[in-house]
């Protein structure tokens, strides 16, 4: 975080973020009781979690006002993280393609 900070302004922001995180938590639990399909519930739940995590990272972890070297380091981490998350999804797609090919071959016989 940069050296010259208005600490009183920072503290006000911290309390606002705290309030937003509590509201987000209530919204996450509230969304659980909505009568929606699993994909919709997953989307809502993960969207709220991502917003909450962004608030923590930007304001509590001071990422909103950080040096470039930290941003570049995190950008590299995010790239590897996305690749890591893509692995199980790719495996799933590959499995489905394999099953489809098997069915096609079976029907050809």
């Amino acid at each position: 975080m940069s050296e010259h900070v208005d600490i009183d302004k920072q503290v006000r922001i911290y309390f606002l973020v705290f309030g937003a995180l509590m509201v987000g938590t209530a919204a996450t639990v509230g969304a659980y009781y909505l009568d929606v399909s699993v994909p919709v519930a997953l989307t809502i739940g993960l969207f709220i979690a991502t917003v909450k995590a962004s608030l923590v990272a930007c304001f509590f972890m001071h990422l909103i006002d950080e040096k470039k070297i930290i941003y570049w380091t995190l950008a590299l981490t995010v790239a590897f993280f996305i690749a890591l998350m893509a692995l199980p999804l790719l495996t799933s797609v590959t499995d489905q393609v394999g099953e489809f090919a098997e069915v096609e071959a079976h029907e050809a016989h």
Binding site: G45, A49, H62
Partner: peptide, 25 residues
């Protein structure tokens, strides 16, 4: 303290995802 805080917030951040993933979704 800022550095230990960064670790502490990261722990909070991980829980923000663990909570819906295991308990709600």
């Amino acid at each position: 303290v800022e550095h230990s805080g960064l670790f502490w917030h990261f722990v909070d951040l991980v829980w923000i995802f663990l909570f819906p993933v295991f308990y709600l979704l």
